[in-house]
């Protein structure tokens, strides 16, 4: 018996470690800890990327690039507990870069990203639910509003983090978020 444990020892598999510990360990070169972070937040990052990109084709690339950047920059992350929103901001940036590059490439001035794949007739036919409706309305939001909304509701960033990320004042973040909510709400009401 080890001396004075107050309860049965917990084996502490890496999967159960808190974000702070995992990102600290990954910053120190622990690939397994990094893998747990990849599994923990990769799916959400993939959702994020597919929403911004409007398709799944480039999603894998963008998420992979994001994690490679994260691995390189993890030692500079001061608060490991904030690793989730930090990762989401990286994938947000990479996704937007990709969309911009794509626009320059086709040389067409789109004010919005293309509508997501979910808008296909097949998906609409089975829709009917509020979540499906929301997916469509989200895709139609102006880009700045959508980015604000996604950083807030998907990445769970604070107003300050969003402002820093988008390089706009906090007051603008507040305004964009309110407008996004208002539009979404109006659209959702019509479907009810």
């Amino acid at each position: 018996m080890p001396p004075t444990p107050t309860r049965e020892p917990v084996s502490s598999p890496l999967e159960s470690f808190p974000d702070q510990v995992l990102s600290d360990r990954a910053a120190d070169g622990d690939m397994r800890a990094f893998e747990v972070l990849v599994r923990r937040y990769g799916p959400l990052m993939r959702v994020y990327a597919s929403r911004v990109l409007g398709s799944n084709d480039e999603m894998d690339d963008v998420v992979q690039e994001s994690f490679i950047t994260a691995w390189q920059q993890l030692p500079t992350l001061e608060n490991g507990a904030a690793v989730k929103s930090w990762l989401m901001r990286i994938v947000s940036r990479k996704s937007v870069d990709r969309v911009r590059a794509r626009r320059q490439h086709v040389n067409i001035d789109l004010t919005d990203a293309p509508a997501p794949a979910q808008q296909s007739p097949h998906r609409l036919a089975e829709a009917g639910s509020q979540t499906e409706a929301l997916t469509r309305v989200l895709a139609e939001l102006p880009e700045d509003q959508r980015r604000c909304w996604m950083l807030r509701e998907l990445a769970e960033c604070s107003y300050g983090e969003i402002a820093a990320e988008l390089e706009i004042p906090v007051s603008t973040v507040r305004g964009l978020l309110a407008r996004a909510r208002k539009t979404l709400l109006q659209e959702m009401e019509e479907w009810r």
Partner: peptide, 20 residues
């Protein structure tokens, strides 16, 4: 959406780990 993504096969995880 996230649930659907986590149910996908694992190849994307290993391909990320190969690149670090």
């Amino acid at each position: 959406d996230a649930q659907r993504e986590s149910e996908r096969e694992d190849s994307w995880v290993s391909s990320i780990l190969q690149h670090i």
